[in-house]
């Protein structure tokens, strides 16, 4: 008797993704959808997609979604959660959305300890707009706006937003993982599960930062992009639990 081990998650609409081959976004979409299914919260979850490659996330997630202006997801999510405290609110944002234009909204949502879950996809570039430098572009990394590679004096250094958020008293659970290997993908799913559970048990702000490959804009094959995360990005953005004051989960 054969048993099926892997299938399309319930809270992801059955449709092809618009993402490039080897893009990490769709892997993360699947993980979020699987977690929502396993925690059985799909009927009371509302998502806030960003402006960026994942703006079309509302075509994929089979939950209520409201679109936020670029960078404002944390504020929109705050409004939603305060009005609907017993619903599960999550934001899904790229690094430009959350760590550049949306920095203030994100830091203050964390500082207020908003009971929301934020999914922070760190792929080191502005993907949708063609590969410009992002706050998380690492030193020496090429992008369309860092000719010759990012230079600290000229372009500043990569921003450790998750660590900064960890300092806020309102942040309950923050972890950085990656989706460049099956092992890390499983680890990401565990982190997402814990983040959603943090919200479900009302213990405050949770965020999972996920290092994700962007082969197109890194101008690498998907396989090389995943290796590059291991070798180059991880030193700047170590995979670790940044904050965890969550109890009995």
């Amino acid at each position: 008797m054969t048993t099926q081990l892997f299938s399309w998650p319930r809270y992801l609409k059955k449709t092809a993704f618009h993402y490039c081959p080897g893009c990490g976004h769709s892997i993360i979409h699947r993980l979020v959808a699987e977690v929502i299914g396993e925690l059985d919260i799909g009927a009371k979850t509302i998502g806030v997609p960003p402006a960026g490659c994942a703006v079309l996330a509302y075509n994929y997630f089979d939950v209520d979604m409201v679109e936020a202006a670029h960078g404002r997801a944390a504020a929109v999510a705050t409004g939603l959660k305060r009005v609907l405290p017993d619903r599960i609110i999550f934001t899904y944002q790229g690094d430009g959305d959350i760590a550049a234009i949306g920095t203030a909204e994100t830091i203050h949502a964390a500082n207020r300890g908003e009971n929301i879950t934020m999914v922070f996809v760190n792929n080191g570039v502005y993907g949708m707009t063609g590969g410009q430098m992002a706050p998380t572009t690492i030193l020496g990394q090429n992008s369309t706006t860092t000719p010759g590679g990012r230079d600290q004096k000229r372009d500043g250094a990569p921003l450790d937003l998750s660590e900064m958020l960890g300092i806020t008293r309102g942040a309950a659970y923050i972890e950085r993982t990656a989706v460049n290997s099956p092992k890390n993908i499983r680890r990401t799913k565990k982190a997402l599960t814990k983040a959603f559970k943090t919200q479900m048990t009302g213990q405050g702000f949770s965020l999972v930062e996920i290092l994700s490959p962007c082969p197109t804009n890194w101008k690498m094959t998907p396989v090389d992009a995943c290796k590059w995360i291991e070798g180059s990005t991880a030193p700047f953005y170590p995979l670790k639990v940044i904050k965890d004051i969550v109890t009995n989960i």
Binding site: Q4, F6, S7, W8, F17, Y19, G22, I27
Partner: peptide, 18 residues
């Protein structure tokens, strides 16, 4: 049936059976 292929597939194009 280790499911690694399906785990990393960005497009959920692989179903695994044991």
């Amino acid at each position: 049936a280790c499911v690694r292929c399906a785990t990393i597939c960005p497009d959920i194009a692989i179903e695994v059976y044991r």
